[in-house]
């Protein structure tokens, strides 16, 4: 009951935001939602499949770049370019899985990092196609039956897609498949002994995760009306990792919250002091020291302790 109330309250807040908040905050909220989707997709891999990756920006950028290239170079309609971006990201996830799933732990981390750097290198170096480090400017926001060019309709498009994606990811984690994934995360050998095909489960997890990261990437490109190799950069991957850790890995809702808080703090603190990186650094260190399971972990600790005096 309380949960239903909380969820409808959250939905109401997001629906009402464009009427209540000045336009700048609608833009900021759009950005938060896009990063929330990116962080949730990464959480599927880290928190549920137990695969810590430093190459997640590759899927984000693959989606965004594929869509941008089709729009700008092939003058395709958004009806083709947008789904194509999602397909490219998913395929990217599958290819990464084929190459990287032979390793575990920090080795997996290094392989995903290396693969992502290859994608970044292509975007950076293939100037005639991708525009190199100048990127691709001048992308128009989509017209899907109605125009999403203005900030408010675009915000609703993003909010709807992110909401549906969150629901879908939540359903995945609650499904028997999701439970098996969690089993693999906790003990791979035991799950293998029980007859689960570990590789196939993780392969699917990477592809699903890449699909949602690609969706975030496409929305990111539409939001900025611009894409540059920064979207593919290792810093973007690391930012996603920080959002997941700060929010609480393996909770889905946590990384979304983490993304929102970090985007807001970056924006808020950097407007007030040039030393904002220092402030953020202190916050990150404090989070790892005092809330190693993230914001959500902190909250559950707090609420369970309150219940049992």
């Amino acid at each position: 009951m309380a949960r239903a109330l909380a969820i409808s309250a959250i939905v109401a807040v997001f629906l009402a935001a464009p009427f209540a908040a000045p336009s700048y905050y609608v833009g900021l909220l759009t950005k938060m939602l896009i990063y929330a989707l990116f962080a949730m997709s990464l959480d599927l891999m880290i928190g549920y499949a137990g695969l810590a990756s430093l190459g997640h920006a590759a899927f984000f950028g693959l989606g965004g770049y594929t869509m941008a290239l089709l729009l700008m170079r092939a003058h395709a309609s958004a009806w083709i370019a947008f789904p194509a971006g999602l397909v490219a990201a998913t395929l990217g996830g599958a290819v990464f899985a084929l190459l990287a799933l032979r390793a575990r732990g920090s080795y997996f981390l290094m392989i995903t990092l290396a693969l992502a750097q290859v994608v970044w290198g292509i975007a950076f170096g293939w100037r005639t196609l991708t525009g190199g480090d100048d990127g691709l400017p001048g992308i128009k926001r989509p017209v899907f039956l109605i125009s999403f060019a203005d900030q408010t309709p675009f915000y609703y498009l993003v909010a709807t897609l992110v909401g549906l994606s969150a629901l879908a990811m939540w359903a995945v984690t609650r499904s028997p498949y999701g439970l098996a994934l969690r089993g693999i995360r906790d003990s791979e050998t035991r799950m293998r002994a029980m007859g689960f095909n570990v590789w196939r489960h993780q392969f699917a997890a990477m592809a699903i995760s890449a699909f949602f990261a690609g969706l975030a990437g496409c929305l990111f490109v539409y939001n900025n009306r611009f894409v540059s190799p920064d979207a593919l950069h290792v810093v973007t991957s690391a930012e996603g990792l920080i959002m997941v850790i700060a929010g609480g890995a393996g909770t889905l809702f946590g990384p979304a919250l983490g993304a929102g808080v970090i985007i807001f703090l970056e924006d808020f603190i950097s407007s007030h002091t040039q030393r904002w990186l220092l402030v953020l650094g202190v916050i990150y260190v404090a989070t790892t020291l005092f809330a190693p399971r993230g914001i959500v972990g902190l909250w559950t600790d707090f609420s369970t302790r309150k219940r049992k005096p």
Binding site: Y24, L28, F220, N224, F226, D230, A231, S271
Partner: peptide
Amino acid sequence: PDVGLTKAQK
């Protein structure tokens, strides 16, 4: 670029 754009909007 994306940070620059957000700052411009702000």
